[in-house]
Amino acid sequence: MDLPTTGQVPRVNTDRIEEMGVEAPTKQRPLLQVTGVNKTFGSVHVLHDVDFAVYPGSVTSLIGDNGAGKSTLVKTIAGIHPRDSGTISFNGEPVDIQSPKDTADLGIEVVYQDLALCENLDIVQNLFLGREKLHRGLLDEQAMEQAARDTLASLSVRTVKSVRQLVSSLSGGQRQTVAIAKAVLWNSKVVLLDEPTAALGVAQTKQVLDLVRRLAEQGLGVVLISHNMNDVLEVSDRVSAMYLGRVVADVPVTPATTREFLVELITSGQSGDVGTARASAAEGVESPQGGTDV
């Protein structure tokens, strides 16, 4: 990644910062709200008083360098890592998330980097895996096939020949699409996408980003974790930047938001008036743990 570490970083226009505002301008109530979450692995403090909010119908990008704590935050929300302190509210109500099942029951779905698909099964079989529709105790293939087709059509996925295609015959973008559709099929309200475009080519990335946008248009709260600032700028409504285990900025994305602004946020924890001072961000952190960013 070409991060400007030294030399001239383009100055950010202060007018624009005022216009963006550091406080969240959204009057909408957040669908998912994380407040003051802390997480340590042994002596390593990975998440510091993290506040993070997801709004319905909008895409919130979570950005940060390797080891900033993005994946740990997602896994904490998903119930894979228990948190040390802090609260998670869903629809304004505090919720007790202890396991991945709790999140799934709330309607929060996580689409992981390594796609959780079975290549030997077809699209329908994968979409309904573990939640097969039954008719008199037997698999109801017709109903599942129709529901799969409807879901894909509602997401404007029109690139698959047949919903009976094996996943092994799909391209990377199509697989990612199926993985995301799997999350949507269950009327989930919040979808967290961990680096969905990391392994994709240009055309396939566009396919997936279009899909991300459509999820938000359907009223879901979407969280996109990405290293690619161009992707982030293209689809996000808001950006939360993490730096050494803290959320240093939570800003709306406007046409004036630049790539350089975001890169500066994730590499130094601040940009212009936005962000936390370097000293306070680094305090109490032994080292950025690359190993925790899995």
């Binding site: 390594d114 698909l117 895996l129």
Partner: peptide, 11 residues
């Protein structure tokens, strides 16, 4: 086909 995917699907 993929035990990890099956596990994540709740199997």
């Amino acid at each position: 086909g993929n035990a990890e995917a099956a596990r994540r699907a709740g199997i």
